[in-house]
Amino acid sequence: MARSVLVTGGNRGIGLAIATAFKEAGDQVAVTFRSGEPPEGFLGVKCDVTDAAQVDAAFDTIAAEHGPVEVLIANAGITRDTLLLRMSDDDWDAVIQTNLTGSFRVARRAAKGMLRLRRGRIVFISSVVGMLGSPGQVNYAASKSGLIGMARSMARELGSRGITTNVVAPGFVETDMTAVLPEETQKQYLSQIPLGRFGRTEEIAQAVRWITSEEAGYITGAVIPVDGGIGMGN
């Protein structure tokens, strides 16, 4: 049966691959985007997750078109990489506001509808960096690590109503962001990955789709690494 699915930041990269996987499975998929154009074939809703009023408006639009959100993928995120001593308050605040507070805001709004339905799936897109750390990414790592504590607390709060809350933590994935890395940096990363390659966005998307499926209905509060083995033991 088609479900109402929302993917935040679903207009490119991992977000678009996730949205596409749900659409191919027959779900009704809405994507939020902050700038540019929405991808064709999806309900595109312009929304900055750092703005509570825009989040509320987006959920109202989606409910009118597809019904209340039954599956939320909180994927919208930004980076502002720089070393600790050079990192400004603004660099810190912008990343935390988008990646962590933005995810909290959309999850809170989605949970309201899911509690009424007595079912739902929430997935936060974290990162292997949230567990391993990364020089120059103190803000990003903190935001992605914070998603895990948030998801596990929500799993305990919402579980009795048939709502699962999980985290998918991608490793290094072939996207526009990794494509611009210097060749030496890419080689260095590849040498640390047991599978010896970067992941594909489709591989992240399939893990996300599975964790929201009926087959995964007894999994909540989990962190699913899709990282080629780089984060083993975390």
Rank of each mutant, 00 (worst) to 15 (best):
L6S: 04
G159A: 10
D90Y: 14
M177G: 10
T8N: 03
L158W: 10
G217Q: 13
G171H: 10
E215A: 15
E174P: 01
G196N: 04
D176A: 13
E215I: 08
W210K: 04
K112S: 07
S213Y: 08
A142E: 12
T165I: 08
L84C: 11
M150Q: 14
V71C: 05
N11Q: 07
R121P: 03
L147T: 05
E24F: 09
Q192M: 09
R86V: 00
G149N: 14
S103W: 06
V173I: 15
A30G: 10
T82Q: 13
I18H: 07
S127F: 09
G77H: 08
A76P: 03
R105N: 07
S191W: 01
T61W: 07
P182W: 05
E65A: 15
M154S: 08
G13K: 08
S4H: 11
D27M: 02
R119P: 01
G229I: 10
H66R: 08
F172T: 01
L158K: 07
M87E: 09
D93A: 13
L100I: 02
V69Q: 04
T220H: 13
I14L: 14
V208E: 02
G221M: 08
G146M: 13
R86G: 08
D93T: 03
G26H: 11
M177F: 12
D227V: 07
F59A: 03
V45D: 04
N166W: 04
G146H: 11
R118P: 00
A57F: 06
S4D: 11
T175V: 09
M177Q: 12
F59G: 01
F59N: 02
T164A: 11
S145Q: 15
I211Q: 02
E174Q: 13
E183S: 01
D93N: 13
A19F: 11
A63G: 12
G196P: 01
